[in-house]
């Protein structure tokens, strides 16, 4: 005779099964679509200089620096289909770095480097919003990624 009621036992097993299904789905997306959390990098001062680097036609590196109350670079131009590595840090307080409608969601922290990779398959303007309270100007802190839209980047802008 078991001590705990048999229905309670079944409930525990059902809960375990649901959680196992979630776990499997998480791992499946991680394996098949490389969908993952930000990558962990050791600190290096090199990332504190904002810049966009073109590695090849469809691969870009962005060193994004958050500071009260702006992102640098504030406009990033890439062609459709490019894969972009974002390296993010902060010059002062904690900021957020969230590319809306993309799975780019990172904290920008002084003395720390955060990294994620994302592919832009569709043209458009992707807003980058600071989503961590960073002082009185927090609500104005936005930047954008412009993907082939409305035109190619003006030639005088650094890429």
């Amino acid at each position: 005779m078991s001590l705990i009621d048999k229905t309670e036992k079944r409930v525990m097993m059902a809960s375990g099964a649901v959680l196992a299904l979630f776990l499997f789905s998480v791992l499946y997306a991680k394996g098949k679509y490389k969908s993952d959390l930000p990558e962990c990098l050791p600190y290096s001062k090199a990332y504190e200089t904002p810049k966009v680097t073109k590695l090849d036609d469809s691969t870009y590196q962005v060193f994004a620096v958050a500071q009260m109350w702006q992102f640098q670079p504030s406009e990033i131009y890439v062609p459709v289909g490019s894969e972009v590595d974002f390296f993010v840090t902060s010059k002062d307080v904690v900021h957020g770095f969230n590319i809306l409608l993309k799975n780019v969601n990172m904290m920008a922290i002084y003395g720390n480097i955060n990294k994620t990779t994302v592919k832009f398959d569709k043209p458009g303007v992707y807003k980058i919003t600071c989503h961590e309270y960073c002082g009185v100007g927090h609500q104005n802190m936005q930047a954008q990624v412009i993907v082939n839209y409305p035109t190619e980047p003006p030639p005088n802008l650094p890429r």
Binding site: A14, V18, F22, S25, A29, S35, L101, K102, N103
Partner: peptide
Amino acid sequence: LVILGLIIWFGIYFLMLSRI
């Protein structure tokens, strides 16, 4: 409850996949 949980969870899961 479990079904509701599956709906909410997989709703966000597929939203995540659509934003890759």
